[in-house]
Simulated scan of single mutants.
Amino acid sequence: MLSITGVFAQAPSDITKFQAFLSHCKLQAPGSNTAASNTVLNNGYTHGTWFHVVDGDKILFNQTGDSNRTELRDEVNWNLNSADRSLHATIDVVSQTPDNYQVTILQIHDDANAGSGPNKPLLRIYKHNNKTPNNHIWAVYKTDITGDINAHVDLGADPGGYFNVDIRLVNGNMIIDFEGVEKVNVDVSYWTFPSYWKAGVYLQDPGTATAHFDQLFTGDGSTLSKKKLEIENIKIYPNPFVDGVNIDTKSQIQSLELYNLLGKVIYKSTKVSDFEYFSRSLQSGVYILKLISEQDRTSTMKLVKQ
């Protein structure tokens, strides 16, 4: 993988645990313009400064300048009243220069091009280093349909390393768990516009900020802070594939689910051999495969049928 600075680097799309989320995202940087389309992003894209892998399996997001960003923009819109859903992230806000007071790391944003929304975030999760109490993680959300009124909630102190954030939309309520503790539970059923997830760094002030993401995935609204362990030593090959795929693991697989990029389950099975045979009949495209083993371990990965 070649970064645009000409330095070889591991790409976030090569890291299995991020592939499901990346599969329906593009990257925006340094402004709202697209730095990497979905195809480019998922084909080994890195940027030597803004976006690459650190510590072997974590995504670095970095940016400089007021209102600049390096953010994954989920290209799949949804309505929070259509189904329960959730986003989990494990994040370390590694650094903020003194002139960068506030950096946003997660968002729910409306898509004004697809609906009649105010083109504002319903929710921002941010760190502020010049607000009392200092060095805390905050949530700010819109309290009415106009998007003009905000409520700020102190989620807790930045622990100085990785912390867990779960955003859950359940029965029209928005629930935010910080480090496994519920901090917000409010009715946001009035927010009926097509919306999407965002993750990365968005600077509300000058200066520079850097965040590392260790986990980033969506779910069905259930509590996600304690992610299930991944299945060990699993190999799925070839990938991309033309005919069928092979699944090689010493673990006993209890169930398999195959999703399209809209999150719809298109195949379920309890037998690896059945899925291997079924994969031969798949149409060309990108899919997400989820496996669960007898120890309740999980593995989720992107499959590409050519």
Results as ranks from 00 to 15, higher is better:
Ala9Gly: 13
Asp14Leu: 09
Phe18Met: 03
Phe18Arg: 06
Cys25Ser: 12
Gln28Val: 13
Pro30Gly: 01
Asn33Asp: 14
Ala35Asn: 02
Thr39Asn: 14
Thr39Cys: 01
Asn42Tyr: 04
Gly44Cys: 03
Trp50Asp: 14
Val54Gly: 03
Val54Glu: 11
Asp57Ala: 14
Gln63Phe: 02
Asp74Val: 01
Trp78Thr: 00
Asn79Phe: 07
Asn79Ser: 04
Ser82Pro: 02
Ser86Ala: 14
Thr90Ser: 14
Asp92Trp: 12
Ser95Phe: 06
Asn100Glu: 12
Asn100Val: 05
Thr104Met: 08
Ile108Cys: 05
Asp110Trp: 11
Asp111Tyr: 13
Ala112Gly: 07
Ala112Trp: 11
Asn113Met: 06
Gly117Gln: 01
Asn119Asp: 15
Lys120Phe: 00
Arg124Thr: 13
Lys127Asn: 11
Val140Met: 13
Asp144Asn: 15
Ile149Val: 15
Ala151Asp: 11
His152Arg: 10
Gly161Trp: 01
Gly161Ile: 08
Phe163Gln: 10
Asp166Tyr: 11
Asp166Phe: 06
Asp166Met: 01
Gly172Trp: 04
Glu182Lys: 14
Val184Met: 08
Thr210Phe: 02
Thr218Pro: 02
Thr218Cys: 12
Gly219Phe: 09
Asp220Ala: 13
Ser225Lys: 05
Lys227Arg: 15
Glu230Gln: 14
Ile247Trp: 03
Ile247Lys: 05
Asp248His: 08
Asp248Val: 06
Lys250Val: 08
Gln252Met: 10
Glu257Met: 07
Tyr277Phe: 07
Ser284Ala: 11
Val286His: 04
Lys290Thr: 12
Leu291Gly: 04
Ile292Glu: 13
Thr298Ser: 11
Met301Thr: 11
